[in-house]
């Protein structure tokens, strides 16, 4: 399962053996789906992350790693404007999606979230039937589709179809945690998004369920662009192509703010990190 990612990353490493502090955008031929320009996010005026400029590449799995409280989830939530739901949150800078600023006043957050789906840390199926869970997105977006077909395709994509095809009308709450999380992925896929954001999708799951979700992520990479926040460094090395390491910087006023220390191909981050802080983290000396 990790074979294709290894091929890609090892190839890049051999081309570029010398460590540099940042090489975001170094590979030219790749499509950029999301680009952040100098993004700062504030909660009640206090910066949570600052100076984030990075590109998310098409059909790649990008992992965001770093210690707790470094703003990984905050950064992830800027990509589909979920921070809008938190009244105290504000931001500056640009988030470009195929060149269009997501935070432009003319942009409808609903359209953004339709194209950029999200899976959360804790599986959060609606207390409804499995079918209704998957069909909810297309229904509220008034998509003119054959609903049965969309539900089946999404569940097949999430490798859940065979387990649930006989009880589609059954409640989603009775499923196991791993099944619930795959249902949440199927639900996100049903609106036919372009990007899938995953916020520690396996942290509430056992190793077997985690393995299934990871297999699924690698499988989905051909059709979707995936950004995943993870606490599990093995997971980042197993599934991701690119890795951004974030950490907390403490300034002279004792203000703690998250910054992106290094963003590069996963193999490089874990084998030849360019920054001593990255090295300390990935070798397990801190965090």
């Amino acid at each position: 399962m990790a074979d294709p990612s290894k091929q890609i990353t090892s190839a890049v490493v051999s081309v570029e053996p010398v460590a540099t502090t940042t090489s975001a955008g170094a590979s030219v031929a790749v499509d950029t789906v999301l680009r952040t320009n100098d993004v700062h996010v504030f909660y009640d005026g206090v910066p949570a992350i600052k100076n984030v400029s990075m590109d998310i590449q098409r059909n790649r799995i990008t992992a965001l790693i770093g210690p707790s409280g470094c703003g990984k989830s905050t950064l992830l939530r800027t990509f589909n404007r979920m921070n809008d739901l938190i009244p105290s949150a504000s931001m500056t800078g640009e988030v470009l999606y195929h060149g269009q600023d997501l935070y432009d006043p003319s942009v409808d957050p609903v359209e953004v979230r339709k194209r950029i789906g999200m899976v959360f840390q804790k599986p959060n199926p609606f207390p409804k039937s499995i079918y209704d869970n998957v069909a909810f997105g297309p229904r509220v977006l008034c998509m003119k589709v054959d609903m049965d077909e969309v539900v089946e395709r999404s569940l097949r994509h999430a490798v859940l179809w065979d387990e649930v095809k006989d009880r589609l009308k059954g409640s989603a709450v009775g499923m196991s945690g791993g099944q619930q999380q795959r249902l949440c992925i199927a639900r996100a896929l049903a609106t036919n998004p372009d990007v899938l954001l995953m916020d520690e999708p396996c942290s509430a799951l056992d190793p077997i369920a985690t393995g299934r979700i990871e297999d699924l992520m690698v499988r989905l990479r051909d059709e979707y662009t995936i950004v995943v926040v993870t606490h599990n460094m093995q997971q980042a090395t197993r599934v991701s192509d690119r890795t951004a390491f974030l950490t907390v910087e403490v300034d002279e006023h004792d203000q703690r703010t998250g910054v992106v220390v290094e963003y590069d191909d996963t193999a490089k981050i874990f084998s030849q990190p360019g920054d001593p802080r990255t090295e300390e983290y990935v070798t397990g000396r801190i965090g």
Binding site: M82, V110, K114, M118, K122, N124, P125, G137, V140, T191
Partner: peptide, 12 residues
């Protein structure tokens, strides 16, 4: 989490 799940799917 229910509200977030729904909003993340593009519901108003």
């Amino acid at each position: 989490s229910l509200r977030e799940a729904s909003m993340a799917l593009g519901a108003t």
